[in-house]
């Protein structure tokens, strides 16, 4: 197990390097211009000088090398400095966003809380709803509950979030005035009122996303339960006279959870990636919104860093999912 994990970790390094190169080259083929949003009243020579100040005059290789050094060497030093109060990174140039002219990682760290709150919470809520629905649907296959559950989960991933989101805003913020239509990222939860305010502004985005997550996971759960319910060991357990509750909730559920747990683990990177559309609709200025605005502004260092962080998380959680699988399912042996 350990050797497998280490081997996979080592193997993922070239994968990640390759991905970072692919992303970098892709971005640098861009015909766009970071100065396009500057008003046309600003003369062309000024724009040219601004471009040079961004380092656009250098060749692609030099820029890639610089980004690698900044991301893999200087940024970790900044992190160490932050935690231990050391001064390794002092005076060294970090990955700088073109748009804000400030370190990319600082902004990412600033954006993470709201993304984790909203997207993370919706993931947790989604999983918590999905599991019981999946279990009951499978246990009573083709019952009314199953049909309704199937229909709702189908709706969940068929109706696009940009449609449900807008609909919710109009009904609940404009018509009824129950929830705010704009997410306040500066709210600090330190009292009962602020907690309620936080709850109110989270309800709609969390609901939209949780519905989507729950639909997918409940389908997995149902399928996995169905696979197991007809297995011989279930028949054996029943024959032994175990109560139905014990059979389903202990024997079947435990085995059915194996693939579902890995699926849940695989979904975690998306939580960090934020939900681009939902964040846009509910004005939750998180990671997803950061990505889309930097794309629109042609802020390449920011886009490059963000996509690479996503890639890193995806590779990491893939590994975690595989290891989990091995730990949970004794039939799997990685040797």
């Amino acid at each position: 197990m350990l050797t497998f994990t280490i081997r996979r970790l080592v193997l993922s390094i070239p994968t990640l390097l390759f991905i970072s190169l692919v992303i970098f080259l892709l971005l640098n083929l861009a015909p766009g211009d970071p100065m396009a949003n500057v008003p046309i009243t600003v003369p062309d020579e000024v724009k040219q000088r601004m471009r040079e100040a961004l380092g656009l005059g250098e060749s692609v290789y030099v820029r890639f090398y610089k980004w690698m050094v900044q991301f893999f060497w200087i940024e970790p030093q900044v992190l160490i400095d932050h935690y231990f109060g050391t001064t390794f990174s002092e005076g060294k140039l970090r990955v700088i966003s073109w748009q804000t002219r400030s370190p990319v990682m600082d902004i990412v760290v600033q954006r993470l809380p709201q993304t984790l709150w909203v997207v993370g919470m919706s993931y947790v809520v989604g999983v918590l709803i999905a599991l019981p629905i999946g279990i009951i649907s499978a246990y009573r296959q083709y019952s009314v509950f199953d049909q309704v559950g199937t229909f709702i989960s189908m709706l969940g991933f068929s109706v696009p979030t940009f449609f449900t989101g807008v609909l919710l805003i109009v009904i609940f913020s404009v018509k009824l005035g129950w929830f705010p239509s704009i997410y306040d990222t500066t709210l600090v939860v330190n009292s009962w009122e602020t907690f309620l305010a936080q709850l109110r502004q989270m309800v709609m985005p969390v609901f939209v996303l949780a519905l989507y997550n729950a639909s997918q996971i409940s389908r997995f759960m149902r399928a996995s339960m169905l696979d197991n319910l007809n297995q011989d060991y279930v028949r054996t357990a029943r024959a032994k006279g175990l109560s139905e509750k014990v059979v389903v909730l202990v024997h079947v559920l435990r085995n059915s959870m194996i693939p579902v747990v890995t699926v849940i683990a695989l979904g975690v990177p998306q939580v960090f990636g934020g939900a681009i559309i939902t964040e846009q609709v509910f004005k939750v200025n998180g990671i997803g919104q950061l990505l889309i605005t930097s794309l629109q502004a042609n802020d390449l260092p920011m886009v490059q860093t963000l996509t690479f962080i996503f890639a890193l998380l995806i590779v990491l959680f893939n590994l975690i999912a595989d290891v989990l699988y091995g730990v949970l399912d004794p039939r799997i042996r990685y040797d």
Partner: peptide, 19 residues
């Protein structure tokens, strides 16, 4: 506050009174 779109901004001032 920044971000979103003109519709949402207008709504926040003219309809919901958040801003």
């Amino acid at each position: 506050k920044g971000g979103g779109d003109a519709t949402a901004a207008g709504r926040a001032v003219l309809e919901t009174g958040e801003f």
